[in-house]
Design a protein around this nucleic acid. Structure first.
Lengths: 345, 345
DNA sequence: CCGTGGGGTGTAAGCGCTTACAGGGTTGCC
DNA sequence: GGCAACCCTGTAAGCGCTTACACCCCACGG
C-alpha cells in the first residue's frame, strides 16, 4: 500500500474523515451526537479516530460551538485550607462532567478579583464560581451582560441576592455558636474577625455574634471585636491585643479556624489555661482543628459536599443556558470540643 | 449622529476596526505588537477598544495563533498543604506573565494523571507542570510528540531525567536529616513513608534514609519501613504499627509533615513522651509543623520560590519553543525543633 | 407503481482572530 | 530630481471545528 506518510503535528478532523471515507461533518457528529449516525459508520469513524490518536482541538471547537467546556473559579487563595477541600471536590466533579477548571486567586483583594473575573470571562469560561456575595455593581452588570452563569459559594443569602448561591448562613451559624458560648456563662466576649471590608462572610459572622449578644442583653462594652488579616500570626497578635485590655474577655470567638489556632498558640505562650482561663472558638472545622491541643470547638462546614454540588449546579446552569438556579442552603453544625468551657469564677 | 445601535453580544475585532476607521489587522497589531503601529493610530484604536469594552475572544485567538496562553498543572491533590503554597505562587506568577492556570488533580493515581495530561494537552495548554519524575514511557512519548514544554516540580533529578525539573534532591535531603537523627544516638529507626508505587519522591526519601543508615553501619533489622497512604489518620496508624513491634524504634522518620503530625498525635495518645521516649521527624515544613507541640523537626522546602520560578521557567520554555531547559536545584535545610532529641537510655 | 417522508450524509459557510504578503507614501541619498 | 529603502497599513487566506441546509436514498402507504 502507498505509504501515505503521516502529516506532521496532531491529526485533525479532516484526517479522520479521509481515513474513514466520510465527510468532516459525519466525524464531528460521531463525536458530539453519536446517535445521529449509523452504527456502521460510527464504528468505522471511531476506528479511524483510535488509529490516528485523534483528539479534537479545543480552541477550534470552542470557537465554532461557542462553548469551551471550561469553568472558571476565583478564590481568595489556594493556600488556605478553608477553600482547598471544597475546590478539590469541585474540580473532581467538574472532571466527571467533562469540564475543566480554570483557576485564579484574588488574594482577598476586590480589585484583583474583578480583574480575574474579566480575564476568565475573556477566556471564554462557560460558567464562573465566586466566593461570597460582596461585589461591585459594575461586576454584576458585566456578568449579566455577558450572560455568564455564575454561582456564589461559601455563602448563602436568604435575602435573595442577585446571584444564586450554595453555602450556609454565616450569621445564623455564628449566632448559634455564640449562644452556646453564652450558655457556658461567658459574659465578656472577644471576637477576632477576618477583615470585613469586601468580605461579607466575615461581616455576617460578626453580625451573628452581635445578634446573639444582644439577645443575651450583653453590654456593648462586653463585646470587643478586632479585625485582622488571615493567618496564624495575625490571629495570635489579635488575641494578645484582646487579652491585654483592662477587662479581658473570658471567651474569644474567632472568624475562622486559622485565626483560632493562632489565638490558641498565643494563649499557650501567655501561659493561659484553655479553657480554664479563657475559651476559644473557630469556624470551618478544618483538619487542623482536631490536631491542636485542646481540640478546637468550631462550626463544621460540609466543604466537599459544597464543592461537589456547586459543580453540578453550575454545569446545569451552563447546559440549560440559565443565569440562575435555586440557591442551596447547606447545614452546618456546632462541634463542641475542648477549647470551650464554662466561664471562669 | 446616526445611532449605530450596538450589536448584541460582546464586540469583536471588526467592531473596533470600524469604529477606529482602520483594518482588523491594524487593531490586532495594536494589541499584540503596539510598536509596529503609528502612535496616532494606536491611540485611536485604543480609544475604540476602551469605548466598546472590547476583549479579544481567546478561542479565536488561540486558534489563529496556535497559542492559548494557558498552562496546565496536574497535582496529586489540592487538599494537601504540601502543594497548596507552591501552586498558589505558581498561579500568581503565571498571572503576572498573562498566562492562566488550568488545573487538574490525579489523586495520586498514575492512570488518572495520564488521562489528565491528555485532557490538558487537548485543551491546548502551552505548557504543563507535573509533580515528580515517575511516569510511563507512553506518556513521555506523547508529550514529546506533541511538542508540549513540560516541567517537573517538587523533584530534582541529578541523573538527567528526560524532563527538566525544579526542586530538590529528595534522597540527599532525607539522608542529611537521617544523619542528624543518627548523630543523636538513635540506632533503631522506623520510617513511615508515603506509598512509593508511582511516587519517586517517596521512594527517594526512603532511599536517602537507607543510604545514611548504611553509612552508619546500622543493622538491616534496625531499620523498619512501613508505607501508608497520605493522611493524619494513616500516619497515626502506621506509627502505632511501628511501636507495637518487639523492639520498637527510638526514632520515627516520616515521609512528610502530615504523616509526622499523625504520628505525633498517636504518640500522645499512647502516652509516649516526645522526644523523651521517641523522636519524630517530618519533611516539607508546612505551617502545621510549628503549630504542634512539640514543634516538628523537619526539612524546610522553599515552596513559594519553587512555584514562582517554575512559572518563569515554563513561560520561558513556551516563549522560546524549547522543550527543555536547565533544571534547577533548590536548597532545602534541616530544621531542628522539639520532636528530635537524644536516643533514650 | 409513484409520491411522500424521514433518516443519514455531504457541502459549505462561518466562528473571531492572526499574519503573510502586497501596496502606497515618505524619507534619504546620490 | 529620481530611485531605493523603509515603514505603516490593508487585503485576504487560513486556523480546525460545528452546523444549517441541501441532497439522496429507501421504506412505506395509497
Amino acid at each position: 500500500m502507498t505509504a501515505e506518510r503521516p502529516k506532521p503535528g496532531p491529526s485533525k478532523l479532516e484526517d479522520v474523515a479521509r481515513l474513514a471515507g466520510v465527510s468532516t461533518a459525519t466525524v464531528s457528529r460521531c463525536l458530539n451526537a453519536p446517535d445521529r449516525v449509523l452504527p456502521a459508520t460510527r464504528t468505522r469513524v471511531m476506528e479511524a479516530v483510535a488509529q490516528l490518536g485523534y483528539a479534537p482541538n479545543s480552541s477550534a471547537r470552542a470557537l465554532a460551538a461557542r462553548q469551551t467546556f471550561t469553568i472558571g473559579a476565583i478564590i481568595p487563595t489556594m493556600e488556605n485550607a478553608i477553600f482547598a477541600r471544597g475546590i478539590q471536590a469541585f474540580q473532581e466533579q467538574l472532571g466527571e462532567r467533562s469540564y475543566t477548571l480554570l483557576i485564579a486567586s484574588s488574594s482577598y483583594r476586590e480589585g484583583l478579583e474583578e480583574a480575574q473575573i474579566r480575564t476568565l470571562a475573556a477566556r471564554g469560561s462557560d460558567g464562573l464560581l465566586l466566593i461570597g456575595h460582596h461585589r461591585q455593581d459594575r461586576v454584576r452588570t458585566f456578568l449579566r451582560d455577558r450572560h455568564i452563569p455564575t454561582l456564589v459559594a461559601w455563602a448563602y443569602d436568604p435575602g435573595g441576592a442577585e446571584l444564586p448561591s450554595i453555602g450556609f448562613d454565616n450569621a445564623r451559624a455564628m449566632a448559634t455558636l455564640a449562644r452556646e458560648v453564652l450558655a457556658h456563662g461567658h459574659r465578656r466576649l472577644g471576637v477576632v474577625s477576618a477583615e470585613t471590608a469586601g468580605n461579607d462572610r466575615a461581616r455576617d459572622r460578626v453580625a451573628g455574634i452581635r445578634r446573639a449578644a444582644a439577645e443575651a442583653r450583653l453590654a456593648v462594652d462586653d463585646l470587643t471585636v478586632v479585625e485582622t488579616q488571615y493567618g496564624f500570626e495575625t490571629g495570635a497578635a489579635a488575641f494578645r491585643r484582646l487579652m491585654d485590655r483592662p477587662r479581658p474577655p473570658t471567651a474569644v470567638m474567632c472568624g475562622n479556624d486559622v485565626l483560632a489556632v493562632g489565638a490558641l498558640r498565643a494563649a499557650g505562650q501567655m501561659g493561659l489555661a484553655i479553657p480554664g482561663e479563657v475559651s476559644i472558638t473557630g469556624f470551618d472545622d478544618i483538619e487542623l482543628a482536631t490536631l491542636v491541643d485542646p481540640p478546637l470547638t468550631t462550626i463544621h462546614v460540609p466543604h466537599r459536599e459544597m464543592g461537589r454540588r456547586a459543580a453540578d449546579m453550575l454545569v446545569g446552569m451552563v447546559a440549560d443556558k440559565r443565569l440562575s438556579t435555586d440557591s442551596i442552603e447547606l447545614g452546618v453544625e456546632v462541634v463542641l470540643r475542648g477549647t470551650l468551657g464554662p466561664a471562669p469564677g
